[in-house]
């Protein structure tokens, strides 16, 4: 286990200790304030060059990362590789070497193939690599911002700050993750982060959308979705890729909604203080009903908002190579 991502890479949450995770959350908390300033900028990464390398298009995550980098005063190279080198058949190694030759300190990368950021970290060991989502493997910053959001909500309720609470608020917390666990990088990162912080994770999905070795995962598989909803503190929904519902993994999207969708009827089973989360983009009417998504229990916009300070924290820790002891706001 790695005890700090300072000066290192962030490709997976599987190898991060609780200490490393809490360090990111605490660092992010100190950046929340920056985002509410009139001048939303600190010089922490001034002079650093961060390449934003999205082999798979994702407007939301790319904008979140680029906003985070700019608020830290880094120079951002935004490269639309999805439409250039890959189509010309260039190897991953050649692509990253070309970009490295431009002079970069870090690369934020998304790729449709699991493990591509791990490979890149071998090709350019002197460049910090931040995984912005790889295939069905990991989406570390999503897991971190989800945990950050949960801690923020629970800390506010408890009248404390997240930073003061550390990981305490997660002890025994019941987190229910629903939907396409099998193909989801978000589920893999969420399960790592929540279990490491001390929460108890239950998953609910049709058998075809669970990994074949789910029995070996550190989670409970819900046998009754409605009962699991009734006891959950946090419900994390996952986007169901439309093609998974075309008969390949579930008979139809409609059948998925009726069995595992968070419909308005099912939302009534939830405890009043339950928190509803979704990494977006939502398929309204498939995994979540519109009225549930727009209800006060849902913190979906708060998740998006928190993406920026969490990614600032990740970029700061990895790329500045410093920790909170040196003031990021100087």
């Amino acid at each position: 286990m790695i005890d700090s991502i300072a000066g290192g890479n962030l490709v997976s949450l599987a190898t991060l200790s609780q200490r490393a995770i809490v360090e990111v959350l605490d660092t992010a908390e100190s950046f929340v304030e920056v985002n509410s300033r009139a001048v939303k900028k600190v010089p922490a990464l001034k002079g650093k060059v961060i390449a934003s390398l999205f082999f798979e298009e994702s407007t939301r995550t790319r904008l979140s990362f680029e906003t985070a980098a700019k608020r830290l005063s880094a120079d951002v190279l935004s490269l639309a590789v999805a439409s250039s080198s890959v189509k010309k058949g260039e190897s991953l190694r050649d692509t990253i070497n070309t970009i490295d030759a431009l002079g970069i300190d870090a690369v934020v990368m998304r790729h449709s193939s699991s493990g591509a950021p791990v490979q890149v970290s071998r090709y350019v060991p002197h460049v910090r690599v931040i995984n912005a989502g790889d295939g069905q493997h990991q989406h570390p910053t999503q897991g971190l911002l989800d945990a950050f959001t949960v801690r923020q909500v629970l800390a506010a309720r408890a009248g404390t700050s997240g930073r003061e609470s550390g990981s305490e608020l997660f002890a025994g917390l019941k987190v229910l993750i629903v939907g396409d666990i099998r193909h989801s990088r978000v589920a893999r990162s969420d399960i790592e982060v929540y279990t490491r912080l001390g929460a108890h994770v239950t998953v609910a999905a049709p058998g075809t959308l669970l990994p074949s070795d789910i029995a070996q995962w550190p989670v409970t598989v819900a046998t009754n979705f409605d009962e699991a909803l009734a006891t959950a503190d946090v419900v994390g929904l996952l986007r169901l890729q439309k093609e998974r519902g075309s008969g390949a993994f579930v008979p139809s999207l409609g059948e998925f909604t009726s069995t595992y969708g968070l419909t308005a009827r099912r939302a009534k089973l939830l405890r009043p203080e339950a928190i509803i989360m979704h990494p977006g983009p939502m398929n309204r009417g498939v995994e979540i009903d519109s009225q549930v998504a727009d209800s006060s229990a849902a913190v979906i916009e708060q998740q998006v908002r928190n993406g920026v300070p969490v990614r600032m924290a990740v970029l700061y820790l990895t790329t500045a190579g410093a920790t909170l002891e040196s003031d990021p706001n100087d």
Binding site: S114, G115, Q136, H183, R185, S212, D213, I214, Q216
Partner: peptide, 15 residues
């Protein structure tokens, strides 16, 4: 191979 490693890595397995 489809198994514990593929599941962790998010790679589609050949069972």
């Amino acid at each position: 191979h489809e198994g514990a490693s593929s599941s962790k890595l998010g790679l589609t397995g050949r069972p």
